[in-house]
């Protein structure tokens, strides 16, 4: 099969690799500890692990966009902030 029409690049392949690895690790986590660990956190809404991953990824996307639109600094800083944000979401949301 020829996938050249999808115009893959190493960067986008790595990006999707990370996303799929995260989803796969969530599946493993669910296997080890079923039920999704629902809880009510900082946002006062009930969230499962999947919800927290979604909030982390969506937030990370907007952190990167805001960083790109508002500053001229390296995007790696935004990635670092996103990782910290993700940890905070999994810890307190």
């Amino acid at each position: 099969m020829n996938f050249s029409w999808m115009a893959w690049t190493p960067a986008t392949a790595a990006f999707f690799g990370v996303i799929f690895a995260l989803i796969a690790s969530m599946a493993v986590w669910e296997r080890l500890k079923p039920g999704g660990s629902p809880r009510v956190g900082l946002l006062r809404i009930e969230t499962t692990r999947g919800d927290r991953l979604f909030i982390s990824l969506l937030g990370a996307a907007f952190i990167h966009l805001a960083w790109l639109g508002l500053t001229d600094f390296s995007l790696w800083i935004a990635t670092g902030i996103s990782v910290l944000y993700g940890i905070a979401v999994f810890r307190w949301v």
Binding site: A7, T9, F15, F16
Partner: peptide, 22 residues
Amino acid sequence: MTVVNYSVQDTFGNNQFFWAGL
């Protein structure tokens, strides 16, 4: 996924793409 791939490249058609980054 294809749209994400397109968003970091430039093309002039003929299925040829050039890296444009962000």
